[in-house]
């Protein structure tokens, strides 16, 4: 008889336990969505942990363009930032990139699907945080990176391995929690 009541109790408690576990999981997901570390619409990068793809892009005058070899020749981690003049979040991100530059973080820009004049006007209006600016007007190199929108930032270490990717505008929280530790680690 006690066996039966135990069974009955189990039958009643099991769904409750499953519901509680589901609730906790859901809450954790919402929490990570709120602090920006989880995005259900985000496309995870295939490049992290892999070598930078081979590329060579023309420059945005007066900057000369750059290639994969140039990134490797920098001898220190480089933050590659895809941006465009038509991109509002890029405007939002611009002041933070300027601050990063002041802190001596090398940021190399790639203007994505943008006209040279528009890019020049954008850099004049929002400041130019880039050590070098290349142009990817067809957006073909961006596809090799796995870019699906702008802005996107890739941290490349001195051996050419991509260590981190952030899709969307960088924020101070993201920089402090994710980028800064990596910059120190791979400096």
């Amino acid at each position: 008889m006690t066996d039966r009541t135990l069974n009955r109790r189990l039958v009643l408690l099991a769904p409750l336990g499953i519901a509680a576990a589901g609730g906790i999981g859901f809450w954790a997901m919402l929490d990570r969505m709120r602090d920006g570390t989880f995005d259900p619409r985000g496309v995870p990068s295939m490049l992290v942990g892999k070598q930078l793809p081979e590329f060579s892009l023309p420059g945005q005058p007066p900057s000369a363009g750059f290639s994969r070899a140039d990134v490797l020749a920098a001898g220190r981690p480089v933050l590659i930032n895809f941006f465009a003049s038509w991109c509002v979040p890029c405007v939002v991100e611009a002041p933070l990139l300027m601050k990063l530059r002041e802190q001596d973080t090398p940021i190399w820009g790639i203007a994505y699907k943008d006209k040279p004049d528009a890019t020049a006007a954008f850099l004049k209006r929002n400041g130019d945080p880039y050590a070098r600016v290349a142009r990817d007007e067809p957006g073909r190199v961006a596809i090799d990176f796995g870019v699906y929108g702008v802005p996107e930032s890739y941290l490349v270490d001195r051996t050419g391995i991509v260590r981190w990717r952030w899709a969307g505008p960088l924020s101070e929280d993201i920089v402090a929690q994710q980028l800064d530790p990596l910059l120190r680690k791979f400096a």
């Binding site: 995005d39 933070l96 101070e172 993201i174």
Partner: peptide, 12 residues
């Protein structure tokens, strides 16, 4: 400054 989180502002 206000931090901008998530991809709501992501552009194509």
């Amino acid at each position: 400054t206000p931090s901008h989180k998530g991809r709501g502002l992501f552009c194509s």
